[in-house]
Nucleic acid binder design. Structure first.
Lengths: 241, 241
DNA sequence: CGGCAGTTTGATGTTACTCAATTTAAGTGG
DNA sequence: CCACTTAAATTGAGTAACATCAAACTGCCG
């Protein structure tokens, strides 16, 4: 995971899996025609576990994840934390960063990551004239709200099994959209601690539930790989109806 | 709670407690100068318990609550439901309704309510030219996200006492902003069932926790009134730090 | 007065947490 | 390639928090 030289970095975002629909690609598409090295954009990277954004701190950039996994979370004073969303390549760290300087969330890298930062003022200027950027942003906000609605319902109303199944089901299509999947084996860099923090359980209990899933031949999770054996049954457990 | 005649309804929204900052007032302010009876706005009311918006159904209007209380929720097939937010006068039922026809949430009236509906196309047209409407909308989205971040953290990480205290603390300043409060007595139309559905507990357990709060002289809740006795201690329990 | 919805209370059951020990896996340096 | 170290996952036993079930109580309204 060595850092590629600066000159190579620009190509990373252009190859974002979501450049067709994502803000990153939308913006880069518009500069390709005009300015190959804009001042209002920069790339950088972070190591696994490194903090990228601190809640309530002010930033002049809007960030897009270009490669790797990250997660947004809310930290409590006593060490507990709630993970609110996992971020995959093409995701904006926070859609509302376009309007608000201070971040609503803390963000940490889960794997090694590469990011793109766009200067907010420039995005807002373009937002005013580009319907494409407008709808990209609106869609990102809608996806965010839809996701947190579901997560809230899962946390408030569902059992441990259902919550974990729901988390997996929510991630599976997003991983599929970004990777070639062979033999139902999905790249999956979360530790059980991350799952626990995301669904409001202890790591110990997560281990027991995943053990149950394995025994029942639903999914197997180890070494950064999620193997999906019985998707139908997983959906029966984890789909919100 | 009889329905006032149509002619009187226009004045209701003008006296919205949040007309200074809310979308409702922002829009009405701009028409007061031009068109006293616009076609792109209409008023209506609903009785206590009546359903106002159905999730996934399409609407041509963006709704603002003018009087009374309502709540947005996600309904599961087996009867469980998660209440995601309580709506007070001046609140948009959903900020993202400006961009998305189909509602992300179901909404029910808690008390008798009066609402204002603005035709979406008209709002979007005005949005393009009015920085005031833009920032009002952005602020509403930001408040929504901030709120669901906190609620998620409370549901995932906190005990029953903390969750209920948190809910009360979240509502208290919003009630204060809309009512004259005497002797720490807040109008509070929620049933224990609503509290339960909002914080992911059973009504029975909510009753026990509230009983504990009463014994300890923190708050008393009965007959639609919340009496706040020891705010400091309530904050010690329910504030997320 | 009777009925109904909402709340309270008690007894019991289940889920998930805590604490602690053990196993497994992943590096690290010799 | 192999001890040694460390982080992560697993397992077991005991406990706390919350759910469930059922009954009694309250205030309200017809």
């Amino acid at each position: 995971m060595a850092n590629p030289p600066e000159t190579a970095l620009a190509s990373i975002c252009v190859t974002c899996p979501h450049r067709e629909t994502g803000l990153c690609g939308t913006l880069l598409g518009s500069i390709a025609e005009t300015d190959p090295q804009p001042r209002w954009q920069h790339f950088f990277s972070a190591r696994p576990g490194e903090q990228i954004v601190v809640r309530n701190q002010a930033y002049d950039d809007v960030f897009v994840l270009c490669s790797g996994w990250a997660f947004g979370y809310f930290q409590l004073a006593d060490g507990r934390r709630q993970i609110l969303k996992f971020l995959l390549p093409g995701d904006m760290l926070s859609s509302l960063a376009v309007f608000e300087k201070s971040s609503l969330l803390s963000v940490k890298a889960l794997t090694g990551v590469q990011l793109s930062g766009f200067v907010r003022s420039e995005i807002r200027a373009r937002l005013a004239t580009s319907p494409e950027i407008q709808s990209t942003l609106a869609n990102s906000c809608i996806a965010d709200v839809r996701h947190s609605t579901e997560l809230l319902t899962a946390l408030g109303q569902c059992t441990a099994e259902q919550r974990i199944a729901h988390l997996l089901l929510q991630l599976i299509p997003r991983i599929e959209a970004r990777n070639v999947i062979r033999e139902q084996r999905y790249p999956f860099p979360l530790r059980q601690q991350h799952i626990a923090d995301a669904v409001g359980l202890t790591p110990v209990h997560v281990s027991r539930v995943l053990g149950g899933f394995r025994e029942r031949q639903l999914v197997e999770l180890s070494e950064g790989v999620l193997k999906v054996i019985n998707l139908r049954e997983l959906e029966r457990i984890g789909l919100l109806r």
